[in-house]
């Protein structure tokens, strides 16, 4: 194993340059280091001007998503040893505007996330005195997988449709909508379907499947979208057969 590794990092400092450039740092190679450790080494020891987001270092906060050698990754869970001796190249996530260096603008994703109402909707709340909404382990299992999403946006960066059609609501938001639709305590499925059966919702997806491949939490957004399409299509058939029934 080599003692150092070349880390090439995308730089963009809007006050200094109009186009992103690349800068290469020679960093010590340590077997237990992840790409985020290498970036922190650069920030602490070599170049304090490098900007990137991170927080928990344990794959929970979803802040440190970047492209490592072309693939969207959580840098806190991507080991240098998986790449060396080849050089490592770190870039900001695709399809989001770059604010600075490796930091992207989250506004579009945040807006879309809010659109699908990812919270429990009740037509009527029962008073706290009547206790919690109980759920069986089976009921929990139906949506648990989709609830693992940490909003890291790797799936957006991997989705070619999002790249081509920025209006597409996107994988994580649809998976989260499905997470609440399938929750036995939720009553908002019809409300969400109205938003998601629009052109920019589920029907934009052409089932490329890259979102599921890059998801660090095994959420399977592509699966969620296909499930949702079946719900949407079933509803469409029903509205055709019983036009008066679904109004």
């Amino acid at each position: 194993m080599p003692s150092t590794v070349a880390l090439t990092v995308a730089r963009y400092r809007p006050e200094r340059e109009s186009e992103p450039t690349f800068q290469t740092y020679e960093i010590p190679f340590r077997k237990d280091w992840v790409v985020l450790d290498a970036l922190n080494h650069v920030k602490d020891e070599l170049d304090g001007s490098l900007s990137f987001r991170w927080s928990c270092r344990m794959g929970v906060c979803g802040s440190c998503g970047m492209k490592v050698n072309g693939t969207p990754k959580l840098t806190c869970a991507t080991f240098l040893s998986d790449y060396v001796p080849a050089p490592i190249r770190v870039e900001p996530l695709d399809y989001f505007p770059v604010v600075r260096d490796l930091v992207v603008d989250l506004t579009d994703f945040m807006r879309k996330l809010k659109q699908v109402k990812p919270w429990i909707i009740r037509t009527e709340e029962k008073p706290p005195a009547e206790g919690e909404y109980l759920q069986t382990p089976d009921q929990l299992d139906t949506y648990k997988q989709f609830s693992m999403c940490i909003n890291c946006m790797l799936c957006y960066s991997a989705c070619p449709i999002y790249g081509l059609e920025p209006s597409f609501i996107g994988p994580a938001a649809i998976a989260l909508a499905q997470r609440y639709n399938m929750d036995s305590r939720d009553e908002g499925a019809a409300e969400r379907l109205k938003i998601l059966s629009e052109h920019d919702g589920i029907w934009q997806c052409t089932f490329v499947g890259e979102c599921t491949k890059v998801c660090p939490k095994h959420v399977d957004p592509a699966g969620a979208i296909q499930q949702y399409k079946l719900t949407g299509a079933t509803r469409w058939v029903k509205s055709l057969l019983l036009p008066w029934g679904t109004r």
């Binding site: 052109h199 399409k229 079946l230 299509a233 058939v237």
Partner: peptide, 10 residues
């Protein structure tokens, strides 16, 4: 008719 086309597709 997108839902119909998707149903035929799947």
């Amino acid at each position: 008719i997108t839902p119909l086309l998707w149903l035929l597709f799947s």
